[in-house]
Structures are given as C-alpha cells and as structure tokens.
C-alpha cells in the first residue's frame, strides 16, 4: 500500500458554526476525503489542552448537542467519502445509546468514536452498533497489551482508531518502529492512526501501516489563530500532505 488517506478532525462550533463549515470546505477543497466531527463535551478527559479549550469555547458560545445534526448535514454535501462523529460517553448515554446510534446512521455517518467506552465497560455500545449497522470504532493504544488487542479483534471491527502516543491529543509524535509494530499487530480492519500528527513527514511515515492519518489539534490550532478559517485550515492541511 503506497497511499494514505487523511482524516481531519474538527470540533463542532469552535469558535462558532461558520468556522466549522468553512474549515470543512477548505479541507474538502484540498482533497481531504474523511472528516471527523467532535461533539463538544464539558469534561473531555482524552483531549489535550487545545481541543479541551475548543470544546469549552464552543459550549460557551452556545453549542447544543441538538445542533449536531445540522453540522453533520452541512458537511455531507461537500463530498467527503466518510464522516465520523466523536464524543464522550455521557452525551450518547443521556441521548440514549441506541437512539444515538440510529440517529447517526440516519444522518449517513460512517462511524462513531467514544473514547471513554472501552471494551467490557461499553454498556453494549459496540454490539448495538453492529445490530443497528453503523461502525463504532474501538480505540487501540500501544500499551494495551496482547490480551486486550485480542479482545478487540474478537469483536471483528471494520475500523479501529489507533492512538499512537500514550497520552492525550495534541503533542508531537514521532512514528517510531514500535508504533509501526503496534499498527501491524492490529492488522485487518481499517486503521485510523492519530495523536500529535502535524507534518507531511509523519503522514508519509504511516503509509503502509494505516488506512488514514488523523490530523486533529494541528487544525484546531489553525482555526484558533485568527478569523480567516478557510485560509488558515488550508495552510495547516497542506503542511500535512505528502507530495505524492
């Protein structure tokens, strides 16, 4: 495999709705085909400072979970081949897990990611997703150990979200041999590998090991840097695109 997709991550409503739609448009215009939208939560335990502050700002500026559908519909028209939705357990829990999964499926969402619903403590979320017919992406990390990887593979996921660095989002990651070995151990499903990616070199390094490289905090930082969201996000994503 010599190609790799980019999955770009946007926090809904940061710093307001137009920022999300303009950023998504910039990404689509630059050829990004996979988008991950985050529904802001008040206590985002797996996010680093950059996306945590983005969630806060979005909520303070009036983002409501009830608006999520509009955001998803507005990016659907831009030509992305996959749209994924990420949030924390309490949001779908309050909404109702099955209702959440059905709503996402009806909105045409490809996959959902809920980092604080690990296998075994997932309230049946992954099984329900299978029944309803939407992908719920389990999160794999390098320190998880062979027995938990086996448990994850036992669920036969179509897609896995792989966090390359032990820790939270937003700090720079070198794609080490250990990371490559870890990604190889997950072989089978489509792997979306992320955490701390901000350069074309990192993305290039992942070729052959992941289906998509996830660019998150790097884009959030670009959005935060000024009001010209379209241009800022265009520049940020271009920095991450390998030449070929």
């Amino acid at each position: 495999m010599s190609t790799i997709e980019i999955m770009a991550h946007l926090v809904m409503g940061f710093p307001r709705k137009e920022a999300t739609t303009e950023s998504a448009r910039a990404l689509a215009d630059r050829g990004v085909r996979i988008l991950e939208l985050q529904i802001p939560f008040s206590d985002p335990t797996a996010d680093g400072p950059v996306n945590t502050r983005a969630c806060e700002t979005s909520l303070r500026e009036g983002f409501r979970v009830a608006h999520a559908g509009e955001y998803i519909r507005s990016v659907q028209e831009m030509g992305f081949t996959e749209v994924h939705v990420m949030t924390y357990a309490n949001i779908p829990f309050r909404f109702g897990f099955d209702r959440y999964l059905r709503t996402m499926k009806d909105l045409g969402v490809t996959g959902v990611i809920v980092p604080d619903l690990p296998i075994e403590d997932d309230e049946g979320f992954y099984a329900s997703a299978g029944i309803i017919g939407i992908d719920a992406l389990p999160v794999a990390v390098p320190n998880m150990g062979a027995s938990r990887i086996k448990l994850m593979q036992g669920m036969n996921p179509n897609r896995i979200y792989a966090a390359l660095r032990e820790g939270v989002t937003g700090r720079s990651t070198g794609i080490t041999d250990d990371a490559k070995q870890f990604l190889t151990s997950l072989a089978g499903p489509k792997i979306y590998a992320g955490f701390g990616i901000s350069s074309a070199e990192q993305v290039s390094d992942l070729k052959g090991y992941a289906y998509a490289a996830v660019i998150g905090s790097h884009i959030t930082r670009a959005i935060a840097s000024g009001p010209d969201w379209y241009d800022q996000v265009s520049r940020a994503i271009e920095q991450c695109m390998p030449d070929t």
Partner: peptide
C-alpha cells in the same frame, strides 16, 4: 464501572 480511555486501562 471503569469508563476510561484505553490508555488508562493498564
């Protein structure tokens, strides 16, 4: 329960 990111499990 133990509703945490996979990174915290170990």
């Amino acid at each position: 329960g133990q509703y945490v990111g996979e990174v915290l499990k170990p």
